[in-house]
Amino acid sequence: MSENNKHHISYGTYILVWAALIAFTSITVTIAGVSLGRYTLFIALSIAAIKSALVINIFMHIKFDEPIFKVFLGISGATLFIIFLLTFFDYIYR
């Protein structure tokens, strides 16, 4: 694993990603006060997913790591997605 971590990310990229995370958080807070009806949850979850992807890929260096870790994360992410999906069968049709 150590060989794969030789990839260096510039400070500029880190700051850019950090700014993007702050921006997305601001958007989340802002749209919480706007009535978007049935799309509110979808938009909030989409923004959360984008933020997670940025943190996982850049800050956690998964983008530059061995494929097996991407598989692990993929399985975890897919499981989480299915859990959300199944929960919505209750909330949407209740």
């Binding site: 199944l86 069968f89 209750d90 909330y91 949407i92 049709y93 209740r94």
Partner: peptide
């Protein structure tokens, strides 16, 4: 528990 009928048959 009171969850939706759709969820009940799916689960």
């Amino acid at each position: 528990s009171g969850m939706s009928d759709t969820a009940r048959w799916i689960f």
